[in-house]
Design a protein around this nucleic acid. Structure first.
Lengths: 215, 215
DNA sequence: CTAGCTACCGAACGCCCGTTAGGTGTAGGA
DNA sequence: TCCTACACCTAACGGGCGTTCGGTAGCTAG
């Protein structure tokens, strides 16, 4: 329950929390309504359907991730620096928005296959993965990375980053900067990138905290 | 739908498939019954409840993982070798049993909190994580590993391994041996283990394929 | 031939689901 | 003062849910 006045945002906030914790299928409109002090019918004044609510969260989530990533990488040329920013930002966004990213990463199966929303989210996810794919391919082509299998390396690194939303706690023992630095270090050595030269600084304040992410 | 004659096993097999693909909450007993050519009532001759079915899969899954791990590590003394076996086996078990491991990793939230089953699975999961924790701590204590933060390194590596169940395909471009070798390499360099000495061989045929894992 | 067991089925129980139709109250502008 | 727009409500719809009860068909042992 958030202190925002905008009811649509309060609904999104409660929804992303419950979808992340119990799962979409296990969350009823009535549960959601109770969390924002409405009746089930009241929800439908702000939301077309339960599935449209999920689709909206996932669409805006992915769009924000892609937009932020393009902004961060803009003007960065060296593959090693680009990969460092990809690893750091994906990790940090998962740490800063655990509920939203859990829904983004885990609830694709809850969108009706073949519906426009389903295809749209898949396209967004593929677009994001394409940035990683291209970055690694470019690094290998330029001789900046040496890997046995590009796809394997990418999947290993992305799993490591996305896993962050499952365990990171802001009041835990390791500050976010340390997590990102550690993961960037692991990632760069995993692709045999030059370990000597400086790693570009990642300004965490440039990363999105989704307005509906529960506080 | 499996060709086994044992109906209890056919139910487990269909259940783990549907739980992994749609999620526990989105799978009904009637769906499950249809998949094994029974009526909903017929299921209850073999299973006490829907939740007991999930709990059984998770309990036996974790128990098999822990038992296999202890067997693999038995007699292996050097932390570097132990960690290599942990990484390789966790990766391979996720690749060989994608449905079971997805349920094990993702459906803990579907067990009623405070129920015996819920606490039991948490204890099993903690026991398994303890093996990793102890291995890394021992390696650091003995000077075999150098890490900034033990918990961070463990979580990064385990996320990488468990992610395998989400993307690995037996008919894909990389054979399982390559995946394991690659991940072991990434993991050992992540903890700054001695990169020179030989990595112990992991016999994939020693790893469990759960009898209910769909084929 | 019968008794008992296993493996089911048909029908129903009470409950909860997503969604909708139609109404109510309130706030702000003309 | 009336009007419109918004933000919600009560009540209900058809349907699916997990689960249970009371069977029944088929097999095996005595």
């Amino acid at each position: 329950m958030l202190t925002t006045t905008d009811p649509a945002l309060r609904i999104k906030s409660a929804a992303v929390l419950m979808f992340a914790q119990r799962g979409y299928a296990a969350t009823s409109i009535r549960d959601l309504a109770k969390a924002v002090n409405m009746t089930n019918a009241g929800i439908y004044h702000h939301v077309a359907s339960k599935e449209a609510l999920l689709a909206g969260l996932m669409r805006e989530g992915h769009a924000g991730l892609i937009e932020t990533t393009h902004r961060l990488l803009d003007g960065v040329d060296r593959p090693r620096d680009r990969l460092a920013l990809l690893i750091g930002s994906l990790t940090a966004i998962h740490a800063l928005n655990p509920m939203t990213t859990r829904v983004m990463d885990g609830e694709l199966r809850s969108l009706t296959p073949g519906s426009g929303a389903h295809d749209e989210i898949i396209a967004l996810r593929d677009a994001y993965e394409g940035i990683w794919r291209d970055t690694i391919a470019e690094g290998v082509a330029r001789g900046a990375f040496i890997v046995a299998n590009q796809k394997l390396s990418r999947l290993a690194l992305m799993s490591m980053c996305t896993g962050t939303s499952e365990w990171y706690r802001p009041d835990g023992e390791s500050p976010l900067e340390e997590v990102c630095a550690e993961f960037v270090g692991i990632g760069l050595t995993a692709v045999n990138a030059d370990p000597a030269s400086r790693i570009p600084h990642l300004d965490l304040s440039l990363l999105p905290i989704y307005p509906w992410e529960p506080r």
